[in-house]
Nucleic acid binder design. Structure first.
Lengths: 333, 333
DNA sequence: CTGAAAGCGCTTACAG
DNA sequence: CTGAAAGCGCTTACAG
C-alpha cells in the first residue's frame, strides 16, 4: 500500500505534475475538457489523496489554528471551543486545542509547539503570566487573539464579557428582590481580569444602590476552599442572605455546601451564578444565572483571527471587544 | 520578520545544514563539543524554531492523531477526549478533535480531511454507517481504533464498556432495593452497539431474577421525545416505579420531566442513570449512577493506537476490549 | 567529526 | 493549453 502521489496521477493521466496541480486547485481556465476528465479519472482510479503537509510546506499555510485554554474545566471554555470549531469548520480550517491547566509553563510550551507546527494563528485564553512571550508574538505580527481575559501591558485584541455589568446584573437582581445582605464568592488563581472586574461590578452596584460594602462579604478562594468560605460567610453574626457565585466552579461548590448542610434555596439563601451551567434549568430550584454569550464570543474570536490570517489588512478597529451578559431568571432568586 | 531556517543557522554557526539537523535530533555521538555550542548559540541568537511541517513531509509522520466523536454532547465523549489528549501529550503527540454530529457524511469528510493532513492514526467513536470506508482503512493497514461502539463486519479493535453488565448492574440494584416494576429508556440514533446491549442487559437481568419483561416498559426514543416517553410510561395502568436512563442525555430529559411534573424521587420514581454526570453528586436527591471508566477507556485507546503507530509489530491480542462499569450508589435509588 | 546531494510531495512563475 | 524547473525546510544515507 504505497502512497500514490501527484507524480503517479500525472503519469497515469499522461500529463505533467503541474497540470494535475492546476486541476487540484481548480484552475481550469486553460484546461481542455478532455485533460480535465483524464485527470479526474486517474485520481479516482488510483485513489489519490493530496498530501496537505506538502502543500502546507510550499504554501506556508496549514489552514489550522491553535486554541489554548487556561482551564478546560470551565463550561465557558468548552462552549467557546465549540463555537470556534464551528466557525473554523465553515472556513475549512482545523483547530488544535490545548489545555494549559492554569500553568504558564505549559502555556508557553504549547505556544512553542503550535508555532513549530506552523499553525496559522492562535486563540488564547491566557493564563496571563507570559507577558513577554505574548508581546513577542505581537511585534512579530503573528496572528493571535485573546479570549476571556486581557493582560496588562499587552495590546493583543481581546474578546471578553463585560464582567462589571455581569456581576452588576446579578447584584441588581438580588436588590430588586429585596435583598440587601449580599455576598460574592470568586475563585482565585491569579489576578486575572474576570475575577477582579466582577468584584468591581459588585461593589459599584452595591454603592449605586446606597448599600454598604462589607469586606467580610467578599471571598476569593481556591476551589477546594470554597465550601469552607460559604460556611464562614453563613456563620457570621449577620450573615448574607444572598450570594453571587463568580463562575461555574464556584457555583458548584456552593451547591455542594447547600446539599451537605440542607440549606434551603432561596428561603435560607438566595443564589445567582455567573455562567449558564448545563443543569441550571432542571436543578431544584432552577438556578438564576447571568449567562455569557459564549457562542458569540467564540465566533467573533475565530472570525477575527481568520480575517487577520487571510487578508493582511489591519482590521483592528478596536482592541477590547466587550460582550453583554444576559440574566436568566429562574427560581434560586 | 522573515522566517529563520536551518540554512540560516548553519551559515551563522559556520557548519552545514546536516550538522544542524543532527544537533536538532540529538545525535551528538560524533559532534565536537565546540560545534555543538556554536550551533546552540546560533539557534538562540537567531530565534530559530524548527519547521515541523517540513520535518513531517520528510519523515512521513506528523506526530498528530485525529479523534472523531459521533456526538460531542455526551459527557462520555468529552471525558474520553480528555483522557486521549492527556495520554498523547505524554508521548508528544497532538490531537485534532472533530465532531461528526451523528452524521455519517460529516464523519466521512472528516476522515478524508484528517488523512489528507497525514495524521498518523485515528481514534473513532463511529457513527457506524461507513462500514466500507472503515474496512478500506483496515485493509490499508491504517492505524485506527474504535471507542464506545463496535461495527458489524468491521474487524477494527474497539474499546468499550461492558454494556450488558452496566445496565444489568443498574437493574440488579433496583431489584435489590425491592423494585420489580422497572422500565428502561434509551435514546435512539441508529442501531448502535451500546443502546442495544444495554437493553439486552436489562432483559437478561430481569429474567435472571424471575421478573417478566414487559415491552411497554422499554422505550427507545429521540432525545426530543423522551419527556413524552416518560409521561407515557407513568400514565400506564400499572406504571413502572423505577427507570433506568440509558445514558446522560436521557437522564437529563427524565430529570426535566421530574421537575416539570413535581415527581418525587425516589418516592414516586426511582432513577438510575448510566454515565456519571457532573451534577450527580450535588443534585437533590443525589443520583445513583452506573459510571463508565472513561479515563481508562480513552487512555487504553490512545496507548493502543500509539503503539500501532510507533512499533510496526502487531499487537492485536484482542479485538474487543471490554471495560467494567461501576455502580455509584447515592439517593435516587 | 562534518558536508554535499538527493529527496519528501506539493506549487508556482515562466516559457512555449 | 501544458510542461520543465526551482523551491518550500527539513532529513538521511553516504562519502571522506
Amino acid at each position: 500500500m504505497k502512497k500514490v502521489t501527484i507524480a503517479d496521477v500525472a503519469q497515469h493521466a499522461n500529463v505533467s505534475k503541474s497540470t494535475v496541480s492546476q486541476y487540484l486547485n481548480n484552475r481550469f481556465d486553460y484546461m481542455r475538457e478532455e485533460t480535465k476528465n483524464r485527470i479526474e479519472e486517474s485520481i479516482k482510479e488510483l485513489g489519490y489523496r493530496p498530501n496537505i503537509v506538502a502543500r502546507s510546506l510550499k504554501q506556508k499555510s496549514t489552514t489550522t489554528i491553535g486554541v489554548i485554554v487556561a482551564n478546560i474545566l470551565h463550561t465557558f471554555s468548552t462552549q467557546v471551543i465549540r463555537a470556534i470549531e464551528d466557525t473554523c469548520q465553515e472556513a475549512e480550517f482545523h483547530t488544535i486545542v490545548c489545555n494549559a491547566d492554569d500553568d504558564p509553563d505549559k502555556e508557553r510550551k504549547y505556544i512553542e509547539m503550535l508555532r513549530a507546527k506552523q499553525v496559522d494563528g492562535i486563540i488564547l485564553l491566557p493564563t496571563g503570566d507570559n507577558a513577554a512571550l505574548y508581546n513577542e508574538m505581537l511585534t512579530e505580527g503573528y496572528p493571535i487573539v485573546f479570549v476571556d481575559r486581557t493582560v496588562p501591558d499587552v495590546a493583543i485584541p481581546s474578546m471578553l464579557l463585560d464582567n462589571e455589568k455581569a456581576s452588576g446584573m446579578g447584584i441588581q437582581h438580588f436588590i430588586d428582590r429585596g435583598y440587601t445582605k449580599i455576598g460574592i464568592i470568586t475563585n482565585v488563581i491569579r489576578n486575572v481580569t474576570p475575577r477582579m472586574e466582577r468584584i468591581t461590578g459588585y461593589k459599584n452596584t452595591m454603592n449605586a444602590n446606597g448599600l454598604d460594602i462589607r469586606e467580610d462579604y467578599i471571598k476569593s478562594l481556591e476551589v477546594s476552599r470554597i465550601r469552607e468560605g460559604v460556611h464562614e460567610l453563613l456563620s457570621l453574626d449577620d450573615p448574607p442572605e444572598a450570594i453571587l457565585a463568580g463562575n461555574d466552579l464556584t457555583l458548584i461548590e456552593i451547591l455542594k455546601y447547600v446539599k451537605e448542610n440542607h440549606v434551603k434555596v432561596p428561603e435560607d439563601l438566595a443564589i445567582i451564578g455567573i455562567d449558564d451551567v448545563s443543569f441550571a434549568g432542571f436543578y431544584e430550584p432552577g438556578l438564576t444565572i447571568v449567562a455569557q454569550p459564549t457562542f458569540e464570543i467564540g465566533k467573533k474570536a475565530a472570525e477575527f483571527l481568520l480575517n487577520k490570517i487571510q487578508k493582511k489588512e489591519d482590521q483592528d478597529e478596536g482592541l477590547v471587544f466587550r460582550f453583554d451578559p444576559k440574566l436568566i431568571i429562574r427560581e434560586s432568586c
